[in-house]
Structure formats: C-alpha cells, structure tokens
Design a protein around this nucleic acid. Structure first.
Length: 265
DNA sequence: ATGGTAGGCCTCCTA
C-alpha cells in the first residue's frame, strides 16, 4: 500500500501532473492540499476514470483539501473535532477547507493544510498555533480511544522542525515556519503519540519538500521541509520506506511542493 | 545588474 501527500497548489492547473504521478508511482491513496477549487468544479471524473474514489472540501480559490483512493473511501469527515475557525478582524470567522479525513483501505487518512501564519504578530499566526494544538488534542483522543488505530495525519504543516530543514535559518528570522512557538506546536503531535515517519526513513539534512517560486529558489536548492506524515504507532510500524519525489518540482507547470510518499506493508 | 513567481473570483490577495 502506498500513501502520498502533495500540496498541488491548484488542482486544475496541475491535474495532468497529478494523474500522471498517481499512475507512475502506483499511488493507492493521495492526500492533496491547496486544491484551490470549489466543490462544483472539482474534477472527480478524471480520478474516477483511473479507478479512484474522491472526497473533497473546497469553497473558493483559497485552501481546499482532497483525498483520492483506489482502496475504498468511506466515513469522510470535513472538519476534525476542535478545528478552529478564522476570520479577518471585523469579519465573521469560518472553519476553512483545511482538513478532510476518511477510511482508505483500513487506514484513517487525514489531508491537512496547516495555516501559513503570515507573520509572527499576525492574527493568522495565532490561528496556526491553535490549529496545531487542536490537531494534537484530537490525535491524542483518537489514540486513547484505540491504541491500535491505523491513523495517518499527512499534509503541508507549514513548519520546519529543524534548522537543517531550511537552507538558511537566518533568512527566516522574524518571519514564519521556524519560530519556537511554531515548532512547539508541531511537536505536540509527537507528544500526542504520533511518529513522523518520513524523517525516520529519510533522516538526511536539507531534504526539502517545497521551494518557493520566487528568487530562483529551486535552481539554488533553497527550500524547506514542511510536508510530513504523522502516523499512529501501529501504522508507523508498517511503514517500510518513504520518498520525497523531488523530480516533480522540475519543468514547466510544477507545484512549489513535491509529493511525499510512504510504502506500507 | 543585488533582480529573478505563480495561481485565481485576477490592477489584489495569498503563498
């Protein structure tokens, strides 16, 4: 069984690449983030033609998360318990399209798009920290209810846990993605009992999953490692390998993120 | 030469 996560940065702009990737890498379950498409425009038929069932959550051109599975897809949920809402000051807060989970081939897979944060003092940062805190609390509840749960929280976590997960920590000073508060919030997932399995299998330094479009970041290999797979112990024990598909950042029409995939026995 | 992006509800916002 192979599970992958990929921030596609617009599914409609990337559909050909995504469908090619599914077939080339024999992906059974793909969790997508930043689909940037509203429900009515989601290209479900294109996935179904290849034998995948899909579940999607998207309201407009922002955010959007989806699952595609060829091992079955049931019990889809479009928010997790405690998932916080967000609204700009003066506007109503709403729960955004940043989480979707379902049972795919006996594994509860959640596709997650953690808020960016925008800046250390931006209200979006408090939202980011609250989102991660709620996610960890929910994971702890799930593991308490079922210690043998087959659970995978995968996606774009928008936090680089180690200094070696970015090309130059000094370049991020006073910005986002590497602050102690963000790293502590992400560490809550491990404290809840989950294991980040991609690093277990790919412990190397400077193995990036995202390179900004600006500043020729990919050409200079100036990226960030911010896409991960947090698994319950019972599932983590079944993971035999992980891969970061760096080649997907190459060429015309690439997302700024690449797929991260797990092979599970 | 100190710049050099991409996407979508597209002259603004988000990343």
């Amino acid at each position: 069984m192979r599970i992958a996560t990929w921030n596609v940065n617009s599914l409609r702009a990337r559909l050909g690449r995504v469908l090619d990737y599914l077939q080339e890498h024999q992906i059974d379950v793909l969790a997508m983030q930043e689909t940037k498409v509203k429900e009515a425009d989601f290209p479900a038929a294109e996935f179904e033609r290849l034998g995948y069932q899909v579940a999607h959550r998207g309201f407009n051109q922002w955010n959007g998360v989806a699952l595609a599975s060829r091992l079955g897809l049931s019990d889809a949920a479009v928010v997790f318990p405690g998932q916080p809402a967000f609204g700009k000051p003066g506007q109503a807060a709403a729960v955004e399209a940043r989480a979707i989970g379902a049972n795919c081939g006996g594994v509860t897979v959640w596709s997650l798009y953690v808020p960016h944060g925008r800046g250390p003092d931006d209200p979006h940062m408090a939202y980011k920290l609250a989102f991660l805190k709620a996610l960890a609390a929910d994971a702890a509840d799930r593991l308490a209810a079922d210690p043998s749960a087959q659970l995978a929280l995968v996606g774009d976590f928008n936090v680089a846990p180690l200094d070696t997960d970015v090309w130059d920590p000094a370049a991020f000073e006073g910005l986002t993605h590497i602050s102690p508060a963000e790293r502590a919030a992400l560490a809550g997932l491990a404290e809840a009992g989950l294991r980040e399995v991609t690093r277990e299998h790919l412990p190397g330094e400077h193995l990036y999953t995202q390179w900004d479009y600006q500043q020729l970041r990919f050409a200079k290999n100036q990226g960030m490692r911010i896409d991960f797979a947090f698994c319950s112990p019972a599932l983590a024990n079944r993971v035999t390998s992980a891969a970061i598909v760096r080649d997907e950042r190459k060429g015309k029409g690439a997302s700024d993120h690449v797929p991260v995939q797990l092979t599970i026995e």
